[in-house]
């Protein structure tokens, strides 16, 4: 990874690293990536199905029933900024 990719990654994840952190992270990332590349041929997974869930596949659905136990006041109790029942952010220009 180079600095340009890292800059994009910071933007994408709404984070900023210090110069020193960037250096440390780049070393870490590149070693992780080359390690994975080195392992790539250790096991051929071409015909292996990916496994997202470790338990057996089962369908889990719920009935379409409305429950509304939480009040807006409670939900906004720890909000940094609210107004007239809305959460607030700086104006988003459309």
């Amino acid at each position: 990874m180079d600095r340009e990719i890292l800059r994009r990654l910071e933007l994408l994840n709404q984070l900023r690293l210090t110069e020193e952190e960037k250096q440390t992270f780049l070393e870490f990332f590149n070693s992780k990536k080359s390690n994975l590349e080195a392992l790539d041929n250790a096991v051929n997974t071409q015909n292996v199905e990916r496994m997202v869930h470790v338990m057996p596949v089962m369908t889990v659905v719920r009935e379409d029933v409305v429950k509304q136990p939480f009040s807006r006041d409670d939900l906004q109790r720890s909000a940094p900024e609210t107004d007239e029942g809305y959460w607030c952010v700086p104006r988003v220009v459309e």
């Binding site: 889990v60 659905v61 719920r62 939480f70 939900l75 007239e84 959460w87």
Partner: peptide, 21 residues
């Protein structure tokens, strides 16, 4: 505004999604 909201749909942690059949 925000009358039909719960911790899950306002982005609070801890509730898990269960699909409406």
């Amino acid at each position: 505004p925000n009358a039909h909201v719960c911790p899950a749909c306002c982005g609070m942690p801890g509730m898990l999604p269960v699909v409406n059949k």
